[in-house]
Amino acid sequence: MSAAIETDGHIASAVRTDAPPAIVLDKVNKWFGALHVLRDVNLQVATGERVVVCGPSGSGKSTMIRCINRLETHQEGRILVDGIELSDDLRALDAIRREVGMVFQSFNLFPHLTILENCTLAPIWVRKMPKKQAEELAMEYLTRVRIPEQAAKYPGQLSGGQQQRVAIARALCMKPKIMLFDEPTSALDPEMIKEVLDTMVMLADTGMTMIVVTHEMGFARQVADRVVFMDRGEVVEVGTPDQVFNDPKTDRLKMFLSQILRGH
């Protein structure tokens, strides 16, 4: 594990129990052909809650969060985001995608647009924001991820860590209520992981509802309200970072933890 984040203190929880849950997964099942990739997945994420999802590769964790904004479609069960049920209704889908930001493992910035254009595209065309206002907003978020000076450059001119921070800023420019992170540091060189994790910690500090698929245990300890351990398409254990990492109940989790600890 990267030692980038010291577990010197868990940041304050922002869970709001008075508000309705941000995300509900109710007995969600999904198959890729004959392969059963999600098996009866149940999960509730409260508004303001920060959930870290971990598990071995192929455990379905990426598929699960990709179902939340329907980059993948689930075949059984219900998913509710911000009170709206995901279905074939395109209007509901648009409404959900406006409120859910996503950060990908491979950044997926648009290489033919400048950093600023990457950030303003969706606010202008989806949120119908005036261009000037969108640019001001973009500069505000670029400043927050500490790269305002790169605004006029193209993604290809930036380092991986910088690109991922732009991707975070780009998602934030839509002012989402929920942020999904799909292994945001897995494609990065070790020395760039810290700058991206720092940005995510900062975001957590603002009370954003977050679901993060990651293997960064230090980050999980510092930020997560709950850690979800998945294996072979199932949610195996759910608990506070302390419970999951220090007091694993199942053999599968024990084995996973011993592997990732030995591996580093």
Partner: peptide, 23 residues
């Protein structure tokens, strides 16, 4: 085009024609 470009545009809530025209 890599699949990620389509996914990023979808995740941002761009419509089909916006995605096609801009990305």
């Amino acid at each position: 085009l890599p699949k990620g470009q389509y996914e990023a545009a979808d995740a941002m809530g761009l419509s089909y024609w916006q995605k096609t025209g801009f990305i």
